[in-house]
Design a protein around this nucleic acid. Sequence first.
DNA 1: CCTTGACTTGGAGTGCACTCGAAGGGTGAA
DNA 2: TTCACCCTTCGAGTGCACTCCAAGTCAAGG
Lengths: 124, 124
Amino acid sequence: MTSLTIAEAAEKTGLTAHTLRYYERDGLMLGAVDRSASGHRRYSAQDLTWIQLITRLRSTGMPIRDVRRYAGLVRAGAGNEGERLAILKGHRDRVQSQLAETARHLRAIDHKIGIYEGQVGAVA
Amino acid sequence: MTSLTIAEAAEKTGLTAHTLRYYERDGLMLGAVDRSASGHRRYSAQDLTWIQLITRLRSTGMPIRDVRRYAGLVRAGAGNEGERLAILKGHRDRVQSQLAETARHLRAIDHKIGIYEGQVGAVA
DNA sequence: CCTTGACTTGGAGTGCACTCGAAGGGTGAA
DNA sequence: TTCACCCTTCGAGTGCACTCCAAGTCAAGG
């Protein structure tokens, strides 16, 4: 099978068909997704690879508009790799520090859990 | 100074005065914040400590409604520590796995950055 | 006294990212 | 062919978490 229906693509990517259409409409794809003779979307392997990347960017907190900007650069073709790199690096750095901060908060919450466990243990 | 104005509390907690009022209105505080004779809010040290905790919960992704539920339990007083613990532990576990997933995505993005840095014309 | 600026309230508005509904056409098995 | 279920578009609706506004109160400085 070289191309997938929207339902199959949704299944494989973990997104809903609604979201897949929304992403395309919103300029997050590299171009219009292929259509069957009857007008139904057919997702190629490249489409899925791209969706996987933007899913990574999204699920690490990159806003839709930045993903759209990045997609625009890729769509424009060779010559803007520096700009793409800047977006990716900026995002990586933000994710990294957010990760560190979350880890700090997690430790504090864990500490609080320890306190409660001591109390509950005492009561029980 | 044993109590702070809303502006001072905002400054110390990193939230805005708007958000502080919103949290109180929405049942996230342990009770009504004290008022001065003229009706202005006065934040105590305990208030700040509590705000710090709920800020940790929020910034690790706990929804407002869960924070509200937790606040309700604390407000209800002793006897429900098990329930509080369950909320905290459930949250910790979710944060932990989300942290791990984000770290995975980060590595994949980093890998892509390596590709861009290594050569021109990377496939999107 | 007058002005400045921080505070109060209830309620409305914003931005983001979906998420869904309506109305209708396409598809594959029996 | 009939049936169930897929797909299409456009546009509206949802949920979350703020964020802001209008209109008014209050304290301190000049």
